[in-house]
């Protein structure tokens, strides 16, 4: 009986150890999973170099941190929030859409829309100018006559 209990216990321990080891290995994220998040972050020292390709030791440490947090079950947003809270919003690939930074997101599209509107507004009446169209066709004909005359002139020069 004791033998049975002992062997069962040892087997259970072995199985637990093996499965535990396997599940721990499974939980360890791959480099690609780490880089998916790392490429969206920038360390404060290596400005304009994304974390996934930065070769400094500090950035390697950050990648290890991401790996650990993924292993602990954190998701992408939580990890980005963690780095942002700790080191400031400059670690994010772009400013968040809140507060003063709303200006960052709104100004380009608004300016472009206004510019297009102004240009279209300035030239809005072109569709009404049918006479211009006819005039321009007439000018086109004159231009062809002009080219013919020019060709003749050139022929004479040759």
């Amino acid at each position: 009986m004791f033998r049975l209990l002992a062997s069962t216990g040892i087997t259970s321990l072995l199985i637990f150890y093996c499965f535990g080891e396997v599940s721990a290995q499974d939980a360890q994220p791959s480099d690609d999973e780490v880089n998916t998040i790392a490429k969206q972050l920038y360390c404060p020292v290596c400005e304009n170099v994304p974390l996934d390709v930065c070769g400094t030791k500090a950035c390697a440490q950050w990648r290890d941190d991401i790996s650990d947090k993924l292993a602990d079950g954190w998701n992408e947003e939580q990890i980005k929030q963690y780095f942002s809270d700790r080191y400031g919003i400059r670690v994010l690939a772009h400013p968040p859409t809140q507060g003063f930074n709303m200006l960052f997101w709104l100004l380009p599209p608004v300016s472009i829309i206004i510019a297009w509107f102004l240009v279209l507004r300035t030239n809005h009446n072109i569709f009404r100018k049918k006479h211009m169209y006819k005039q321009s066709i007439a000018k086109q004909v004159r231009a062809e006559e002009y080219i013919g005359q020019l060709e003749n002139d050139l022929e004479q020069w040759r």
Binding site: Y42, P44, P50, R90, A93, P95, N101
Partner: peptide, 18 residues
Amino acid sequence: YPIISELVTGQKVTVGPP
């Protein structure tokens, strides 16, 4: 914008490829 942000809010921001 990063210069403006730092001047106005004192906060540095990154404007990356996205």
